[in-house]
């Protein structure tokens, strides 16, 4: 019985996760500049991939595999923000301008440690 419930749940998680991946891709395509695109890639992308890895943990029924799926998820959560942060910093320091819609810009390039 529990196997059946878990399999339905895993299928649901799979659909949800791939939907988040699709939305991240749509965001990458539609958003106006580098910094806003980074939001879509780092949040929706991480979420989608994380949900799919969680779905594996629900269908595996094997401690080692569940642990490995969770380890992959945690690794993803640790690396995604670092990558986004590095890219945003590199883009800003090399003078890639944010979109004209930007309403506040308190970031001063002189105060940053290059």
């Amino acid at each position: 019985m529990i196997v059946t419930i878990f399999q339905y749940f895993a299928g649901f998680l799979m659909l949800l996760g791939s939907a988040f991946c699709l939305l991240a891709a749509v965001g990458i395509l539609r958003l106006p500049d580098i910094y806003t695109r980074m939001h879509a890639a780092s949040k929706a992308g991480t979420m989608g991939t994380g949900l799919l890895l969680t779905a594996i943990a629900f269908v595996a029924f094997d401690g080692a595999i569940i642990l490995r799926a969770i380890a992959a998820f945690v690794f993803l959560l640790l690396t995604a923000p670092v990558a986004a942060h590095l890219l945003a910093r590199a883009a800003f320091l090399t003078g890639h301008k944010p979109t004209e819609m930007t309403i506040i810009n308190e970031l001063d390039i002189k105060k940053l440690d290059k």
Partner: peptide, 28 residues
């Protein structure tokens, strides 16, 4: 918060008048 943020970005991206709702900015 991660779930909330992903859902919010997802809804923002799906809106047809996305550009009107977007008010990006750098904050100290």
């Amino acid at each position: 918060e991660l779930a909330l943020s992903a859902i919010r970005v997802a809804f923002l991206v799906l809106k047809p008048n996305m550009k009107a709702q977007l008010k990006p900015g750098f904050i100290a």
